[in-house]
Amino acid sequence: MTEDYEVEFVEREEREARFVVRGITPAFANGIRRAMIADVPTFSVDTVRVVENSSVMFDEQISLRLGLVPLTTPVDEFEIGDEVTLSIDVSGPNTAYSGDIVTSDDLVQPADDNVPIIELKDDQRLEAEADAVLDRGREHAKHQGGVAVGYRHLQRVEVVGDKEEFAKEEPEILRGVIEDDGELVATETFDNDLTNRYPGKEVEVHDIPNAFVFHVETDGSFSVDELVTAAIDSLHGRATELKEAVQL
């Protein structure tokens, strides 16, 4: 990268964030998005050994549900293909939750404790052992760390004059984040309709070149910060690999 780029947060929480990146090309922005979805590995249950399952669901259905439960994944602690054994043992009448999963490694445990796995009636029981595997989103969607990751152009709003007296009152719907006098404003603050912000004004909206607003959510495997940095590291790693491979 020869040009400078800058990052500015609009919203920042553990599992959800919105930030503006300036000075990157559309191709690079898309590269980051794709890396966040497909290249950042997370742990997910892959093999289940059922000891007893007298619930109303088949073993396969229970296994699918276990596979979809997000597991915390410390970045750089494990390698792709590493396995961690988990187990669950719940007897009815009770509901088996993701929080009932017992882990053999405290670094890898369910990110949420209250996802219902299966409701058990009297005399029903679920006992199973499962292997969680670290893999990438491109292998299976259950390994995706980023959820609903996307970006939009940052847009600039310009007031060009007043509306004509009997002009049609049409809504001017915008979504995402706009830049107004150098200030970043989320469109939700004016109900996504520019006419609420500038009543009776004629406005023009332009895309700002090479400025993108990313919206990133994670499934709880790691924080947004870890996801974004891991995605960029993976891009960087592949770029270096390519550079070395084509050197004479």
Partner: peptide, 19 residues
């Protein structure tokens, strides 16, 4: 039968909100 663990479309975990 039981509430889906994740949203079919976007994959966010919705099961935790069910109860």
């Amino acid at each position: 039968m039981m509430v889906p663990v994740r949203c079919f479309t976007c994959g966010s975990v919705v099961g935790k909100h069910w109860e």
